[in-house]
Design a protein around this nucleic acid. Structure first.
Length: 589
RNA sequence: CGGGGCGUAGCUUAGCCUGGUAGAGCGCCUGGUUUGGGACCAGGAGGUCAAAGGUUCGAAUCCUUUCGCCCCGACCA
């Protein structure tokens, strides 16, 4: 049982100007956190309690799924990361420590880095411990502060530079076991987010710099999210827009036959899809081939799409390049022979075809049939270009951005798109990390052969989850904490804390509530009733019990759940049993 | 890193355009009256106007630079 006067909950009437979105405002107003710097937050007592509740649920679900908790350092030798498979990609987001102590000299290269995630640490750590297939089938996890130099911290805890993460890593003997572990973790994630009181969906996701075979993200639908999720209610298909497919090209689609010979025509000053769609040309975007040039690991390559489609850059990850960026106009001109705006991949029109590492096309260009594209000559385009006959395509794939309304790849029904916050991500990694010669995780199997462990990794943004809960569970008065993550379950608002009769009743009801598994706060501050009511609503405690002089005279206390409109009067002699039974009813545990 | 915006008391901000020595509300302190949805009255403390440089008789205000923060884009749990 805690007393408001003895803890520290600095609530604010007005929102600090720095907060833009509701959950961020409420974090500050309810006295949960305070900003120390951009993307750096202090958890005040109330916020710390919520963070601990969420962490504890996470811990329970991980343990229940058979994962084993450990704790690794956050300060890590840079050498270990340099030896890993993604140093170049990952160092961008890592804080580094180049020296320590007054006498040390700054080094050119960092000596230490602050851990943004721990594949590079746990793989050699566990790798040196395990040697037999009998040791395998192990999943480890930790709940720890992570550091990422986010280019743009945002929205409080939503994207912070220092944040609390649960990161888990599994090591299995083979693919089959690894996938079983993956499914088990997915179930644990489902239970975790459900226990946090969140409405969420798990979606197919891009693996990003993590690499690996496949992955799923856990998404909380919210306007303020950073991701778009494509989904179909009919089939249950759901994917991050970075990964989402659409059933635009039917399986039995047959391409149009050539419609005549290619014709070159003059298009002075026309360098956009829109320009070619306008008069006097009038070629619809759907009937144009769009050619985009990128550089992957120093090598130029082309991607061809329909004029009406947008490239989904994340999908270029499938091509296997480590670092991808758009090509510069100079690079483009030197290889294609024309500036952007007049590009195409019609055979024999590319100035230096041999310098293109590849020409990739989205499947959907088959829908175009005969279309128009750039002639690789500034100011000229080509028409009657037949995709199959004329384009110099190395391979087809899925590169376009899916749009709402397009057919679901599974059910054919229109796809929907919703904004969401990513709160968790699980990866089937495969052997990307474990197979490393220098520090991998290998074992001897029952056939006496040495093989790399098949890994998976599993992240939950614990502090981000706290804010996602607020974003999803609030009203105009403040936060409405779901039971399991509420910093306190019951707040006993004593209007006259000087009256001993009131305080002793509060203590009695508090003790009774605790017996029903509730965490109890007694608001014993010397404040006016309005202040206490507003604060109770703001900090979002599920149940408020009001003890006031008026009620004491009548022989009643008031019981009000945060999600109910009004309070109910309960006779004092019945109050204990009523409160206990209502708490037992609400308490899901 | 590119684009936009903002830094005035613990918080929200007025003043800046058109230079003349900083004002309010909330919060805080004292006293009084109050006491069931962010009370009222009286008094009080609190600001090197982000920092540095410049223009000027005079700069919160104009100019330059730096720093910090917020928002939009690329990245992530």
């Amino acid at each position: 049982m805690h007393y408001w006067s003895k803890t520290y909950i600095p609530t604010l009437k007005e929102s600090p100007a720095e907060a833009e979105i509701e959950s961020h405002k409420l974090l500050l107003r309810a006295g949960l956190v305070r900003k120390v710097g951009a993307g750096l937050y202090a958890f005040l007592p109330l916020g710390k309690r919520v963070l601990e509740k969420v962490s504890q649920i996470c811990r329970e679900e991980m343990d229940a799924a058979g994962a084993i908790e450990l704790l690794m350092p956050a300060v890590l030798p840079a050498e270990q990361w340099k030896a890993g498979p993604r140093w170049n990609a990952v160092r961008e987001v890592m804080y580094s420590v180049s020296s320590a102590g007054a006498d040390s000299k700054p080094a050119d290269e960092p000596q230490y880095v602050l851990g943004p995630t721990h594949e590079e640490v746990i793989t050699p750590l566990i790798g040196s411990e395990i040697s037999s297939y009998r040791d395998l089938g192990k999943t480890f996890y930790q709940i720890q502060t992570k550091f990422r130099n986010e280019i743009r911290p945002r929205y409080g805890l939503m994207r912070a530079r220092e944040f609390v993460m649960k990161d888990g890593y599994s090591f299995d003997e083979n693919d089959e076991n690894a996938e079983a572990t993956y499914r088990q973790m997915a179930q644990a994630y489902d239970r975790f987010f459900a226990r946090c009181g969140l409405t969420f969906i798990s979606v197919e996701a891009d693996t990003g710099i993590m690499g690996g075979a496949f992955s799923h993200e856990y998404m909380v639908p919210a306007e303020v999210g950073d991701d778009d999720v494509v989904y179909c209610e009919e089939s249950g298909y759901a994917a991050n827009i970075e990964k989402a497919r659409s059933g635009l090209v039917p399986a039995d689609f047959s391409e149009a036959a050539p419609d005549g010979a290619i014709e070159e025509f003059e298009t002075p000053g026309v360098t956009t899809i829109k320009g070619l769609a306008a008069e006097p040309y009038g070629i619809k975007a759907e009937a144009q081939f769009k050619t985009l040039l990128y550089v992957g690991d120093g090598k130029l390559f082309a991607v061809v799409l329909r004029g009406c489609d947008d490239l989904q850059e994340a999908k270029l990850g499938l091509l296997g390049y480590e670092l991808v960026r758009p090509a510069t106009p100079e690079e483009i001109e030197s290889v294609m022979g024309a500036k952007p705006g007049s590009l195409g991949v019609v055979k024999d029109t590319i100035k230096a075809r041999e310098q293109l590492d590849g020409i990739y096309a989205d499947e959907s260009i088959r829908l175009v049939g005969n279309g128009a594209t750039g002639a690789n000559k500034d100011g000229f385009h080509l028409r009657n270009v037949n995709a199959r006959r004329d384009l110099d395509i190395d391979s087809y794939g899925d590169f376009r951005m899916a749009n709402a309304g397009e057919p679901c790849p599974q059910s054919g029904k229109p796809l929907k798109i919703v904004r969401a916050i990513e709160v968790g991500h699980i990866f089937k990694l495969g052997t990307k990390f474990s197979e490393s010669d220098s520090w991998g995780a290998t074992f001897t199997d029952s056939q006496k052969e040495t093989r790399p462990a098949v890994m998976g990794c599993y992240g939950i943004g614990v502090s981000r989850t706290v804010q996602a809960i607020i974003e999803q569970s609030r009203d105009s008065q403040g936060i409405k904490w779901p039971w399991n993550v509420a910093p306190y379950h019951v707040i006993i608002t004593v209007l006259d804390p000087d009256v001993e009769e009131a305080m002793s009743l509060a203590r009695k009801l508090g003790t009774a509530s605790e017996s029903a598994g509730a965490d109890v706060m007694i608001d014993d501050r010397d404040e006016r009733p309005g202040v206490k009511f507003k604060d109770a609503d703001l900090i979002g405690i599920p149940l408020r019990i009001t003890i006031g002089g008026r009620g004491l005279k009548e022989g009643v206390v008031e019981v009000k759940w945060r999600d109910e409109e009004s309070a109910r009067k309960v006779a004092i002699d019945e109050s204990e049993s009523v409160v206990v039974s209502e708490l037992r009813e609400r308490n899901p545990n």
